[in-house]
Design a protein around this nucleic acid. Structure first.
Lengths: 196, 196
DNA sequence: CCGCATCCCCAAAGATACTG
DNA sequence: CAGTATCTTTGGGGATGCGG
Protein backbone atom coordinates (compact mmCIF):
# COMPACT_ATOMS: atom_id res chain seq x y z
CA UNK A 1 0.00 0.00 0.00
CA UNK A 2 2.67 2.45 1.00
CA UNK A 3 4.59 1.78 -2.19
CA UNK A 4 1.48 2.17 -4.32
CA UNK A 5 0.87 5.52 -2.66
CA UNK A 6 4.47 6.48 -3.36
CA UNK A 7 3.70 6.00 -7.03
CA UNK A 8 0.21 7.45 -7.37
CA UNK A 9 -0.59 8.86 -3.93
CA UNK A 10 0.35 12.46 -4.58
CA UNK A 11 -2.38 14.98 -4.92
CA UNK A 12 -3.87 14.97 -8.45
CA UNK A 13 -1.91 11.88 -9.51
CA UNK A 14 -4.87 9.50 -9.58
CA UNK A 15 -7.00 12.10 -11.31
CA UNK A 16 -4.39 12.42 -14.04
CA UNK A 17 -4.44 8.65 -14.42
CA UNK A 18 -8.24 8.70 -14.51
CA UNK A 19 -8.19 11.09 -17.46
CA UNK A 20 -5.60 9.05 -19.32
CA UNK A 21 -7.58 5.87 -18.64
CA UNK A 22 -9.95 6.96 -21.40
CA UNK A 23 -7.24 7.41 -23.99
CA UNK A 24 -4.11 9.45 -24.69
CA UNK A 25 -4.36 13.16 -24.08
CA UNK A 26 -2.33 16.26 -24.77
CA UNK A 27 -0.91 18.38 -22.01
CA UNK A 28 -3.34 21.21 -22.48
CA UNK A 29 -6.36 18.93 -22.72
CA UNK A 30 -5.37 17.32 -19.46
CA UNK A 31 -5.17 20.74 -17.88
CA UNK A 32 -8.66 21.63 -19.05
CA UNK A 33 -10.14 18.40 -17.75
CA UNK A 34 -8.55 18.88 -14.35
CA UNK A 35 -9.84 22.27 -13.27
CA UNK A 36 -7.67 23.89 -10.65
CA UNK A 37 -4.58 21.82 -11.13
CA UNK A 38 -2.06 24.50 -12.10
CA UNK A 39 0.37 23.97 -14.92
CA UNK A 40 3.42 23.37 -12.77
CA UNK A 41 1.72 20.60 -10.81
CA UNK A 42 0.53 18.91 -13.97
CA UNK A 43 4.03 19.01 -15.42
CA UNK A 44 5.49 17.64 -12.20
CA UNK A 45 2.92 14.86 -11.91
CA UNK A 46 3.40 13.79 -15.50
CA UNK A 47 7.15 13.71 -15.04
CA UNK A 48 6.86 11.71 -11.81
CA UNK A 49 4.34 9.29 -13.24
CA UNK A 50 6.57 8.81 -16.26
CA UNK A 51 9.51 8.12 -13.96
CA UNK A 52 7.45 5.56 -12.10
CA UNK A 53 6.51 3.69 -15.26
CA UNK A 54 2.83 4.61 -15.11
CA UNK A 55 2.71 7.14 -17.95
CA UNK A 56 4.58 7.38 -21.23
CA UNK A 57 5.14 10.32 -23.57
CA UNK A 58 4.57 9.68 -27.19
CA UNK A 59 4.57 11.62 -30.44
CA UNK A 60 1.67 11.10 -32.79
CA UNK A 61 2.61 9.96 -36.26
CA UNK A 62 3.22 12.82 -38.73
CA UNK A 63 1.59 14.91 -39.98
CA UNK A 64 -0.19 15.20 -36.63
CA UNK A 65 3.14 15.24 -34.79
CA UNK A 66 1.81 16.47 -31.50
CA UNK A 67 2.89 15.19 -28.10
CA UNK A 68 0.51 13.08 -26.10
CA UNK A 69 0.63 11.33 -22.76
CA UNK A 70 -0.69 7.81 -22.41
CA UNK A 71 -0.77 5.10 -19.79
CA UNK A 72 1.73 2.29 -19.88
CA UNK A 73 0.49 -1.27 -19.49
CA UNK A 74 1.30 -0.97 -15.80
CA UNK A 75 -0.70 2.22 -15.61
CA UNK A 76 -3.70 0.61 -17.26
CA UNK A 77 -3.56 -2.10 -14.61
CA UNK A 78 -4.73 0.53 -12.13
CA UNK A 79 -8.23 0.26 -13.56
CA UNK A 80 -9.60 -2.26 -11.04
CA UNK A 81 -8.26 -0.24 -8.13
CA UNK A 82 -9.66 2.99 -9.50
CA UNK A 83 -13.05 1.42 -10.21
CA UNK A 84 -13.22 0.13 -6.65
CA UNK A 85 -12.26 3.48 -5.21
CA UNK A 86 -14.71 5.37 -7.41
CA UNK A 87 -17.59 3.06 -6.52
CA UNK A 88 -16.77 3.44 -2.86
CA UNK A 89 -16.77 7.19 -3.15
CA UNK A 90 -19.99 7.21 -5.15
CA UNK A 91 -21.81 5.59 -2.24
CA UNK A 92 -21.48 8.78 -0.23
CA UNK A 93 -21.95 11.21 -3.09
CA UNK A 94 -25.27 12.92 -3.43
CA UNK A 95 -26.78 14.64 -6.46
CA UNK A 96 -25.19 17.95 -7.46
CA UNK A 97 -26.66 20.98 -5.80
CA UNK A 98 -26.14 23.52 -8.53
CA UNK A 99 -25.44 23.86 -12.20
CA UNK A 100 -21.74 24.37 -11.73
CA UNK A 101 -19.04 21.76 -11.47
CA UNK A 102 -19.53 20.48 -14.99
CA UNK A 103 -16.06 20.69 -16.46
CA UNK A 104 -14.93 19.29 -19.81
CA UNK A 105 -15.22 15.54 -19.83
CA UNK A 106 -17.45 15.19 -16.78
CA UNK A 107 -20.08 13.27 -18.70
CA UNK A 108 -17.57 10.80 -20.05
CA UNK A 109 -16.12 10.30 -16.60
CA UNK A 110 -19.57 9.76 -15.15
CA UNK A 111 -20.35 7.12 -17.74
CA UNK A 112 -16.99 5.45 -17.35
CA UNK A 113 -16.99 5.26 -13.57
CA UNK A 114 -20.63 4.62 -12.77
CA UNK A 115 -22.32 3.08 -15.80
CA UNK A 116 -19.65 1.21 -17.75
CA UNK A 117 -18.82 -1.36 -15.05
CA UNK A 118 -22.44 -2.56 -14.99
CA UNK A 119 -23.50 -1.97 -18.56
CA UNK A 120 -25.45 -4.55 -20.55
CA UNK A 121 -24.70 -4.83 -24.26
CA UNK A 122 -26.19 -1.99 -26.27
CA UNK A 123 -25.67 1.53 -27.50
CA UNK A 124 -26.69 4.35 -25.17
CA UNK A 125 -26.26 8.04 -25.91
CA UNK A 126 -26.41 10.74 -23.24
CA UNK A 127 -26.97 14.35 -24.27
CA UNK A 128 -26.39 17.04 -21.71
CA UNK A 129 -28.17 20.02 -23.27
CA UNK A 130 -25.91 22.93 -24.01
CA UNK A 131 -22.94 20.97 -22.78
CA UNK A 132 -21.59 17.57 -23.82
CA UNK A 133 -22.70 14.38 -25.46
CA UNK A 134 -21.13 11.02 -24.63
CA UNK A 135 -22.06 7.42 -25.21
CA UNK A 136 -21.83 3.96 -23.78
CA UNK A 137 -21.20 1.30 -26.39
CA UNK A 138 -21.23 -2.29 -25.12
CA UNK A 139 -19.72 -1.33 -21.80
CA UNK A 140 -17.21 1.20 -23.02
CA UNK A 141 -17.43 4.95 -22.63
CA UNK A 142 -17.08 6.91 -25.87
CA UNK A 143 -16.93 10.66 -26.31
CA UNK A 144 -19.55 12.24 -28.50
CA UNK A 145 -22.66 10.76 -30.15
CA UNK A 146 -22.88 7.24 -31.51
CA UNK A 147 -24.43 5.88 -34.70
CA UNK A 148 -27.78 4.11 -34.46
CA UNK A 149 -28.16 4.31 -30.68
CA UNK A 150 -30.59 1.93 -29.03
CA UNK A 151 -31.63 4.62 -26.59
CA UNK A 152 -30.97 8.34 -26.24
CA UNK A 153 -31.26 10.29 -22.99
CA UNK A 154 -31.51 14.07 -23.22
CA UNK A 155 -31.70 16.65 -20.48
CA UNK A 156 -30.01 19.42 -18.58
CA UNK A 157 -26.58 18.46 -17.23
CA UNK A 158 -27.78 18.40 -13.64
CA UNK A 159 -30.72 16.18 -14.56
CA UNK A 160 -28.61 13.74 -16.52
CA UNK A 161 -26.31 13.54 -13.54
CA UNK A 162 -29.20 13.07 -11.15
CA UNK A 163 -30.60 10.27 -13.26
CA UNK A 164 -27.38 8.33 -12.88
CA UNK A 165 -26.93 8.79 -9.14
CA UNK A 166 -30.59 8.36 -8.22
CA UNK A 167 -31.35 5.65 -10.76
CA UNK A 168 -34.55 7.34 -11.91
CA UNK A 169 -34.95 9.04 -15.34
CA UNK A 170 -37.33 11.66 -14.00
CA UNK A 171 -36.39 15.04 -15.44
CA UNK A 172 -34.94 13.80 -18.74
CA UNK A 173 -36.33 12.84 -22.12
CA UNK A 174 -35.77 9.25 -23.21
CA UNK A 175 -36.04 8.16 -26.85
CA UNK A 176 -35.79 4.55 -27.94
CA UNK A 177 -35.44 1.42 -25.86
CA UNK A 178 -36.54 2.51 -22.40
CA UNK A 179 -36.26 -1.05 -21.18
CA UNK A 180 -32.55 -1.11 -21.88
CA UNK A 181 -32.07 2.11 -19.92
CA UNK A 182 -34.10 0.73 -17.03
CA UNK A 183 -31.99 -2.42 -17.05
CA UNK A 184 -28.80 -0.38 -16.91
CA UNK A 185 -30.01 1.87 -14.11
CA UNK A 186 -31.10 -1.16 -12.11
CA UNK A 187 -27.64 -2.70 -12.47
CA UNK A 188 -25.93 0.41 -11.17
CA UNK A 189 -25.29 0.26 -7.47
CA UNK A 190 -27.85 2.50 -5.86
CA UNK A 191 -26.15 5.27 -3.93
CA UNK A 192 -26.61 4.06 -0.41
CA UNK A 193 -27.56 6.68 2.14
CA UNK A 194 -24.26 6.98 3.92
CA UNK A 195 -24.61 9.68 6.49
CA UNK A 196 -21.80 12.16 6.33
CA UNK B 1 -13.01 9.39 -7.87
CA UNK B 2 -12.50 12.99 -6.88
CA UNK B 3 -14.96 12.64 -4.04
CA UNK B 4 -13.32 9.43 -2.82
CA UNK B 5 -10.00 11.26 -2.80
CA UNK B 6 -11.60 14.09 -0.86
CA UNK B 7 -12.43 11.55 1.83
CA UNK B 8 -9.29 9.39 1.94
CA UNK B 9 -6.89 11.02 -0.51
CA UNK B 10 -4.87 13.03 2.00
CA UNK B 11 -1.40 11.89 2.79
CA UNK B 12 -1.40 9.12 5.41
CA UNK B 13 -5.18 8.75 5.33
CA UNK B 14 -5.24 5.41 3.52
CA UNK B 15 -2.41 4.13 5.70
CA UNK B 16 -4.39 4.96 8.80
CA UNK B 17 -7.34 3.07 7.31
CA UNK B 18 -5.04 0.16 6.47
CA UNK B 19 -3.99 -0.14 10.10
CA UNK B 20 -7.56 0.05 11.35
CA UNK B 21 -8.62 -2.53 8.78
CA UNK B 22 -7.06 -5.17 11.03
CA UNK B 23 -9.00 -4.14 14.09
CA UNK B 24 -9.51 -1.19 16.44
CA UNK B 25 -6.35 0.55 17.63
CA UNK B 26 -5.41 3.12 20.19
CA UNK B 27 -3.95 6.46 19.22
CA UNK B 28 -0.45 5.62 20.37
CA UNK B 29 -0.44 2.21 18.72
CA UNK B 30 -1.43 3.81 15.44
CA UNK B 31 1.44 6.23 15.79
CA UNK B 32 3.90 3.39 16.32
CA UNK B 33 2.67 1.47 13.32
CA UNK B 34 2.92 4.51 11.07
CA UNK B 35 6.55 5.52 11.45
CA UNK B 36 7.14 9.13 10.55
CA UNK B 37 3.58 10.33 10.75
CA UNK B 38 3.89 12.96 13.49
CA UNK B 39 1.32 13.19 16.23
CA UNK B 40 -0.41 16.28 14.92
CA UNK B 41 -0.98 14.75 11.48
CA UNK B 42 -2.36 11.59 13.04
CA UNK B 43 -4.74 13.61 15.19
CA UNK B 44 -5.86 15.64 12.18
CA UNK B 45 -6.39 12.59 9.98
CA UNK B 46 -8.40 10.80 12.62
CA UNK B 47 -10.57 13.85 13.12
CA UNK B 48 -11.12 14.26 9.39
CA UNK B 49 -11.81 10.59 8.81
CA UNK B 50 -14.28 10.65 11.67
CA UNK B 51 -15.99 13.67 10.15
CA UNK B 52 -16.23 11.83 6.84
CA UNK B 53 -17.88 8.79 8.40
CA UNK B 54 -14.94 6.47 7.79
CA UNK B 55 -13.65 6.17 11.36
CA UNK B 56 -15.41 6.13 14.71
CA UNK B 57 -14.08 6.76 18.22
CA UNK B 58 -15.14 4.34 20.82
CA UNK B 59 -14.47 3.67 24.48
CA UNK B 60 -13.72 0.12 25.49
CA UNK B 61 -16.04 -1.33 28.11
CA UNK B 62 -14.86 -0.77 31.69
CA UNK B 63 -12.62 -1.65 33.38
CA UNK B 64 -10.48 -1.32 30.22
CA UNK B 65 -11.96 2.12 29.52
CA UNK B 66 -9.39 3.20 26.99
CA UNK B 67 -10.17 5.07 23.81
CA UNK B 68 -9.85 3.28 20.51
CA UNK B 69 -10.42 4.17 16.89
CA UNK B 70 -12.21 1.77 14.62
CA UNK B 71 -13.59 1.74 11.09
CA UNK B 72 -17.26 2.34 10.45
CA UNK B 73 -19.11 -0.01 8.14
CA UNK B 74 -18.46 2.46 5.34
CA UNK B 75 -14.78 2.49 6.20
CA UNK B 76 -14.60 -1.29 6.10
CA UNK B 77 -16.07 -1.16 2.62
CA UNK B 78 -12.76 0.28 1.46
CA UNK B 79 -11.21 -3.16 1.69
CA UNK B 80 -11.66 -4.14 -1.99
CA UNK B 81 -10.22 -0.83 -3.17
CA UNK B 82 -7.27 -1.10 -0.81
CA UNK B 83 -6.58 -4.70 -1.81
CA UNK B 84 -6.57 -3.73 -5.47
CA UNK B 85 -4.24 -0.82 -4.85
CA UNK B 86 -1.89 -2.89 -2.71
CA UNK B 87 -1.69 -5.67 -5.29
CA UNK B 88 -0.98 -3.15 -8.00
CA UNK B 89 1.80 -1.61 -5.95
CA UNK B 90 3.25 -4.99 -5.07
CA UNK B 91 3.86 -5.72 -8.75
CA UNK B 92 6.55 -3.06 -8.86
CA UNK B 93 7.97 -3.69 -5.40
CA UNK B 94 11.21 -5.56 -5.12
CA UNK B 95 12.66 -7.39 -2.13
CA UNK B 96 13.95 -5.19 0.68
CA UNK B 97 17.55 -4.16 0.37
CA UNK B 98 18.47 -3.93 4.01
CA UNK B 99 17.37 -5.00 7.46
CA UNK B 100 15.66 -1.72 8.23
CA UNK B 101 12.13 -0.72 7.45
CA UNK B 102 10.55 -3.35 9.64
CA UNK B 103 8.24 -1.33 11.86
CA UNK B 104 5.69 -2.73 14.30
CA UNK B 105 2.99 -4.62 12.46
CA UNK B 106 4.85 -5.01 9.17
CA UNK B 107 4.49 -8.77 9.19
CA UNK B 108 0.77 -8.61 9.78
CA UNK B 109 0.38 -6.09 7.00
CA UNK B 110 2.42 -8.25 4.66
CA UNK B 111 0.23 -11.26 5.39
CA UNK B 112 -2.97 -9.26 5.11
CA UNK B 113 -2.16 -7.55 1.84
CA UNK B 114 -0.25 -10.21 -0.05
CA UNK B 115 -1.15 -13.61 1.34
CA UNK B 116 -4.66 -13.36 2.75
CA UNK B 117 -6.44 -12.59 -0.54
CA UNK B 118 -5.15 -15.85 -2.07
CA UNK B 119 -4.95 -18.10 0.95
CA UNK B 120 -6.21 -21.67 0.89
CA UNK B 121 -7.80 -23.00 4.08
CA UNK B 122 -5.24 -23.83 6.73
CA UNK B 123 -3.21 -22.46 9.58
CA UNK B 124 0.12 -20.84 8.72
CA UNK B 125 2.47 -19.22 11.20
CA UNK B 126 5.26 -16.85 10.21
CA UNK B 127 8.08 -16.16 12.67
CA UNK B 128 10.41 -13.28 11.93
CA UNK B 129 13.35 -14.08 14.22
CA UNK B 130 14.00 -11.41 16.81
CA UNK B 131 11.03 -9.46 15.58
CA UNK B 132 7.40 -10.45 15.19
CA UNK B 133 5.22 -13.48 14.74
CA UNK B 134 1.95 -13.39 12.86
CA UNK B 135 -0.35 -15.97 11.38
CA UNK B 136 -2.77 -16.67 8.58
CA UNK B 137 -5.81 -18.64 9.66
CA UNK B 138 -8.20 -19.65 6.88
CA UNK B 139 -7.57 -16.49 4.92
CA UNK B 140 -7.46 -14.05 7.78
CA UNK B 141 -4.39 -12.34 9.20
CA UNK B 142 -3.91 -12.75 12.94
CA UNK B 143 -1.28 -11.17 15.16
CA UNK B 144 0.95 -13.51 17.10
CA UNK B 145 1.30 -17.30 16.98
CA UNK B 146 -1.57 -19.70 16.39
CA UNK B 147 -2.44 -23.00 18.03
CA UNK B 148 -1.69 -26.23 16.15
CA UNK B 149 -0.39 -24.60 12.97
CA UNK B 150 -0.32 -26.70 9.82
CA UNK B 151 2.95 -25.12 8.79
CA UNK B 152 5.47 -22.80 10.45
CA UNK B 153 7.93 -20.60 8.58
CA UNK B 154 10.87 -19.22 10.50
CA UNK B 155 13.63 -16.89 9.38
CA UNK B 156 15.17 -13.48 9.52
CA UNK B 157 12.72 -10.68 8.80
CA UNK B 158 14.30 -9.90 5.45
CA UNK B 159 14.16 -13.55 4.42
CA UNK B 160 10.53 -13.98 5.44
CA UNK B 161 9.75 -10.89 3.42
CA UNK B 162 11.73 -12.15 0.45
CA UNK B 163 9.93 -15.46 0.53
CA UNK B 164 6.61 -13.71 0.10
CA UNK B 165 7.62 -11.38 -2.71
CA UNK B 166 9.72 -13.90 -4.63
CA UNK B 167 7.51 -16.90 -3.96
CA UNK B 168 10.43 -19.11 -2.99
CA UNK B 169 11.12 -20.28 0.60
CA UNK B 170 14.86 -20.27 0.13
CA UNK B 171 16.48 -18.74 3.19
CA UNK B 172 13.87 -19.78 5.74
CA UNK B 173 13.13 -22.89 7.79
CA UNK B 174 9.81 -24.58 7.13
CA UNK B 175 8.23 -27.01 9.59
CA UNK B 176 5.07 -28.96 8.86
CA UNK B 177 3.02 -29.09 5.70
CA UNK B 178 5.38 -27.79 3.03
CA UNK B 179 2.81 -28.59 0.37
CA UNK B 180 0.35 -26.13 1.88
CA UNK B 181 2.99 -23.41 1.88
CA UNK B 182 3.88 -24.16 -1.72
CA UNK B 183 0.22 -23.99 -2.68
CA UNK B 184 -0.11 -20.60 -1.02
CA UNK B 185 3.00 -19.18 -2.61
CA UNK B 186 1.86 -20.40 -6.00
CA UNK B 187 -1.48 -18.65 -5.56
CA UNK B 188 0.18 -15.35 -4.74
CA UNK B 189 0.62 -13.16 -7.78
CA UNK B 190 4.25 -13.34 -8.70
CA UNK B 191 5.83 -9.93 -8.58
CA UNK B 192 6.07 -9.12 -12.25
CA UNK B 193 9.25 -7.49 -13.40
CA UNK B 194 7.94 -3.99 -13.91
CA UNK B 195 10.86 -1.84 -14.88
CA UNK B 196 11.01 1.32 -12.85
C1' DC C 1 -2.03 28.01 -29.51
C1' DC C 2 0.87 24.29 -27.17
C1' DG C 3 4.03 22.84 -23.58
C1' DC C 4 5.98 23.76 -20.25
C1' DA C 5 9.53 26.62 -16.60
C1' DT C 6 9.69 30.28 -13.13
C1' DC C 7 8.28 33.07 -9.48
C1' DC C 8 5.66 34.43 -5.57
C1' DC C 9 2.64 33.45 -1.87
C1' DC C 10 0.29 30.92 1.31
C1' DA C 11 -1.76 26.82 3.41
C1' DA C 12 -0.74 22.50 4.82
C1' DA C 13 2.60 19.05 6.43
C1' DG C 14 6.64 17.66 9.34
C1' DA C 15 9.49 17.77 13.63
C1' DT C 16 9.73 18.64 18.22
C1' DA C 17 8.37 20.03 22.66
C1' DC C 18 5.08 20.10 25.95
C1' DT C 19 0.75 19.26 28.77
C1' DG C 20 -3.76 17.39 31.06
C1' DC D 1 -1.64 7.76 27.03
C1' DA D 2 -3.61 11.10 24.06
C1' DG D 3 -3.24 14.48 22.24
C1' DT D 4 -2.19 20.27 21.70
C1' DA D 5 1.08 24.11 20.76
C1' DT D 6 4.75 25.98 18.24
C1' DC D 7 7.98 26.45 14.75
C1' DT D 8 9.94 25.31 10.39
C1' DT D 9 9.71 23.50 5.80
C1' DT D 10 7.56 21.76 1.93
C1' DG D 11 4.44 21.62 -1.57
C1' DG D 12 0.30 23.48 -4.08
C1' DG D 13 -2.31 27.44 -6.47
C1' DG D 14 -2.09 31.24 -9.42
C1' DA D 15 -0.02 34.31 -12.51
C1' DT D 16 3.32 35.15 -15.83
C1' DG D 17 6.86 34.37 -19.28
C1' DC D 18 8.72 32.26 -23.26
C1' DG D 19 10.49 29.21 -26.86
C1' DG D 20 8.59 26.09 -30.44
Amino acid sequence: MAHALDLVGDRWALLVVRELMRGPKRYTDLGERLPGIGTNILATRLRDLEGHGVVRRSILAPPAASKVYELTEYGRELRPAMRALAEWGARSLGPPTDESGFFPGWLGNLIDSMLAPHAPAGRLELRALGDETASLVDGEAVDGPVERPDVVVEGKPVDVYSMVVTGRPDQVHVHGDKGLLAELLRAVQPTAAVQS
